[in-house]
Simulated scan of single mutants.
Amino acid sequence: MSQITGKCIIRLNGSELKSTDDATLNVGGVNREAVVGGGKVYGYKEETVAPTLECSVAHDKNTDLVALSATTDATIIFESDTGDKYVLRGAFMTEPASLQTTNGTASLNWSALSCERM
């Protein structure tokens, strides 16, 4: 029986983030949408989708949310507990970090120029 992903480690420019296990990685590529008319499906059209990574990090006095929010042109390594790894190149924050005091985490939303399986 094979192991199913349940945890992850996220590294930003070589430094491990204090990431929680509820991250979502979208490797990017294309979305396809059906083209219809006259009661028929003619085919599909494609739209390019950028890779994204949504994650939360445990927040403490050493977590610099301003610096994280200003990050551009970063390299992010996403590694699951199954050993599967992805690298996001040219990564940038898409919005400022958001701190949630009720659970002590900050939400980070990234996009990137590319995502490759290692």
Rank of each mutant, 00 (worst) to 15 (best):
M1V: 15
G6L: 04
I9H: 05
I10Y: 02
L12D: 01
L12E: 02
L12C: 05
N13Y: 00
E16L: 06
S19K: 06
T20L: 13
D21I: 10
D22M: 13
D22L: 12
L25N: 04
V27T: 13
V30K: 14
V30F: 15
V30P: 02
N31T: 15
R32G: 12
E33M: 05
V36P: 01
G37I: 00
G39I: 02
V41L: 04
V41A: 03
G43C: 07
K45Y: 05
E47Q: 11
V49N: 04
A50F: 08
P51H: 00
L53K: 08
D60N: 13
K61T: 07
N62I: 02
V66P: 03
V66L: 07
A67W: 05
S69Y: 07
T71I: 13
T71M: 08
D73F: 02
D73S: 09
D73K: 09
T75Y: 05
F78D: 00
F78K: 00
F78N: 00
D81T: 09
T82H: 07
G83S: 14
Y86L: 04
R89F: 08
G90P: 11
A91W: 00
A91L: 12
F92H: 06
M93N: 03
E95I: 13
E95T: 10
S98E: 08
Q100M: 14
T101F: 04
T101C: 06
T102M: 11
T102K: 11
T102Q: 14
G104E: 01
T105E: 00
W110H: 05
S111E: 12
A112F: 07
C115R: 06
R117F: 03
M118K: 15
M118Y: 13
